[in-house]
Design a protein around this nucleic acid. Structure first.
Lengths: 212, 212
DNA sequence: CCTACCGATCGGTAGG
DNA sequence: CCTACCGATCGGTAGG
């Protein structure tokens, strides 16, 4: 956000980690990312069109391609942007033991107010199971990372004597992540059917001897 | 499968529940359904094309549209066909209490040998959370039905004193279905990472006092 | 950021 | 079931 110049320095090369360069370019870029998030979530990667996303941002679709080199880069930028925003919101510092679980429950509560984000991850992660999908590697790495994180949290809790007897940290972590994902589908299909954070909390507490 | 005539009687009007009419037409129809299942699973509803599905069946795409009136009807026929086949495989008769859980575990074991089926339901159910998706109502009804079924199973088990203390049948059912769905995503992303039936069984047993 | 344009592909219909 | 065709839409590029 610093060192602005009137003309952007190759903004097309930034696929998500790069910071936008002009004030206006930065705002447009963010608007595109937010709009694309909604469209990818509602229509899926293939179903969403650059023209539609661009029109909602009141620019032409070649205008959009001035900010992102192609559709694939746009999707990856959207996903990276979401992760970056989430990391900023739940300052990832508090990363030990039970705090990990508290963070996931808090995140579920917040996301119940942001359907678009839930849709994005549910739809695109499902699509991404196909090997040719542009986000295939992204989600493979993401799941490996998250399962490891929760496994570590269960391992710490177990060492502190806070887990139920016979708990297997890795399997418990897989179950926890699976539960999160599955609840999101049910919630999207009927937002009144499930309260995600409370179901998550009660599941976590059934695996722990401590209260969350 | 009976009463064959040389010429089909309006096969285009059957969207899944209707039986095909000619011997050859029936075989082609089944081939289309199987091929479409794979393509809808790998590419999603919008990503899959009638031309591609037809080509894999070695017919033209208007040829495909002779069997199914349009793309939407094809998708619904695929989903209905899968449910019908599943119902036939796991004779739905044994519908009481713990047998319901045993059936889900068995189904998970079988599906680990049939990636295409898992892909179909993971991808299309995620897409279907969008209100305009052609399978939106199908999955809304499907989830309501399945959650009810498992709720009933837990209720029966609870009345028999076979559930852990404080179990809430409906919440437990939502958790169980969510777990199934979430495990499928992790399994599709890395088939070596999770053994779905064993994780399901261990979860079920953690909610019961009886052994499955 | 824009207009103009490209080739490719889409679902569906006409008419046999 | 087929060929031929329709209008619509797609991602991306040329050239400013």
């Amino acid at each position: 956000m610093t060192g602005d110049t009137q003309h952007p320095i190759d903004p097309a090369s930034s696929t998500g980690t790069g910071t936008a360069v002009t004030r206006k370019g930065s705002k447009t870029r963010t608007l595109i990312l937010r709009t694309a998030m909604t469209q990818f979530g509602e229509q899926g990667y293939r179903g969403a069109s650059l023209r539609d996303i661009a029109a909602r941002c009141r620019i032409s679709h070649p205008g959009l391609l001035y900010h992102f080199p192609n559709k694939e880069a746009l999707l990856l930028a959207v996903l990276a942007h979401r992760d970056a925003v989430d990391r900023a919101e739940h300052s990832i510092a508090d990363d030990a033991g039970l705090d990990v679980f508290r963070r996931f429950v808090r995140s579920a509560a917040v996301n119940q107010g942001r359907r678009g984000i839930v849709e994005l991850f549910v739809v695109v992660s499902a699509e991404s199971t196909s090997v040719e999908h542009p986000a295939h590697q992204f989600f493979q790495l993401r799941y490996a990372r998250i399962v490891d994180e929760v496994t570590q949290a269960y391992t710490v809790a177990q060492a502190a004597g806070e887990t139920v007897d016979g708990l297997e940290p890795r399997v418990a972590a897989q179950q926890f992540i699976a539960l999160m994902d599955g609840l999101q589908i049910q919630w999207l299909l009927d937002t009144t059917a499930v309260d995600m954070p409370s179901v998550l909390r009660s599941h976590i507490e059934s695996t722990l001897t401590a209260t969350l």
